[in-house]
Structures are given as C-alpha cells and as structure tokens.
Amino acid sequence: MNMHSSVNSTTAFDTSSQSDQDVLISLDHVSLSFGGVKAISDISFNIKKGEIRAIIGPNGAGKTSMLNVINGFYHPQEGTITWRGKVRRKMKPYEAASNGIARTFQNVALFKGMSTLDNIMTGRGLKMKTNFFWQCLRVGPALKEEIANREKVEEIIEFLEIQHIRRTPVGRLPYGLQKRVELARALAMEPELLLLDEPMAGMNIEEKTDMSRFILDVNDQYGTTIALIEHDMGVVMDLSDRVVVLDYGRKIADGAPKEVQSSQAVIDAYLGVSH
C-alpha cells in the first residue's frame, strides 16, 4: 500500500547542489511579526525528506506561527522559504495544500456538523475532479470517483482504527478521537509534508502511545515527512530524528534529540519558563 506514489512521481528536483537533494523545505532568516510582537525572529532551519522533525519550546515561543508560515497561513516579513528546491513565492493555504502540505491544529479544527467519514472525505477534495453537472447526477465518473476515494478513506479509517465511529458526528466524539480523526483528514490528502501541532496535548498515556505509534507508522509505511510540535519530551525523544528548539521567537538549538536535550541553552529556557 503506497499512498504516495502519485505525489512522489510528480516531485521535481532542480537543485544544483548535491547535499540539498534530501531537503524538502528550508526556511532561511525568516522573521514574522504581528504589529509590535515579534513571533519569529530570524530563524533558519530545514526539514529533510522522510524525517520526523520535532519543534519544541515553551508556550508562546513561536512554534505554531512557524507551522502557519510553512503552510501559507502567515506570510513572513523577511526571509525565504525553499520548497522542494525552489524558492517559494507568497503562497495561499490552499496552494500549500495542493503542493502536498497537510496539517492538524493545536485546538482541534474539525468540521463539527459532519460525520467522521465526511470529515475525512473532505480531505480528498483535491483529488476529486468531476464537475458540478456530474455531481448533480451522481452517476458515471462522479460516482466512480466518489467510490474510489471512499475506498482510500476506508484504508485510512482502518489504519487509524476508527471504523466504529465512521458515522458519528465528530462533535460527539471524545477529544482523543477527535485528534485522531483530524490526523485521518490530513492523511486523506496524501501529503508529502505533514505538520502536527501538539497532536497529543490533553491525551492520557494510552492515547499518547497509540498516537505515537500512528505517527511512526505514517512515517514508515507512507514515507511521509513529518514536522511535530510536542511538549512531552519523552515522546519527542522517541519519535523524532532531529529537534529544533525555539524560545521567544528565536532558534536556540537544533540537532539530534540527545544533543539538544543536553544543551545548556535549552535547559535554561525550560527552567526559566516552567519553574
């Protein structure tokens, strides 16, 4: 089961330097401010193809803003973003989506009035092409497309073990399951880069274990590159290949989990905030 064949086959590399080949996205000297508040100051870092990249830091450090910059929700005042080897112009969120960037939100952002199934089907929207008139008739290509995409969605439903809540309106689901449906909706897009904003916040140990397993499996089976914001250091150590640490909108460390954990700047930042 390779969900990413379509995305991978269209990926074009036109980088000159050999070492950049495996960089999926790179941010260079990016700054973002809201009025007087500087959310991100002069941050550079990259995400390599196929890795799990953790972004950590105290509250208000600028982690969510970082994801918002990556998927085109905010536009940085300074710096450049290079996506698949090409400097990216100002990009709208739906363009980022059609470029293969999916995400989940810190506060669950599901479509409350729709069932689990419809929420995930909505994630297939970009893969569906039949026009309005076929959709009115819902026969021929429209029906075929609907069924083909439904099959894909059922694969994801099975993968994330949410068969039993298929028909449930998502508003009625407990928080942990809502987070899982949100992940399913993002996966339905068959993204190349998946941004997860605190996917385990507010979960109990068991739910965290499940979610960790799903994240690893997504990365493993589908080859999806993942950027992950997470506060639980244990989870970060277990899951991530590399970690970038933010504090007050600045990057204070970047590297393998072990290195970062022992870095003095990181220890200071965490001690300074949480104690």
């Binding site: 998927n71 739906y94 059609s98 999916a102 995400r103 939100f105 952002a109 994630g123 929207g125």
Partner: peptide, 8 residues
C-alpha cells in the same frame, strides 16, 4: 480556516 488549509 481548516477548510482552506486542506485545499478548499
């Protein structure tokens, strides 16, 4: 917002 971020 979520709709736009998934490509609507």
């Amino acid at each position: 917002i979520a709709a736009e971020l998934i490509g609507v």
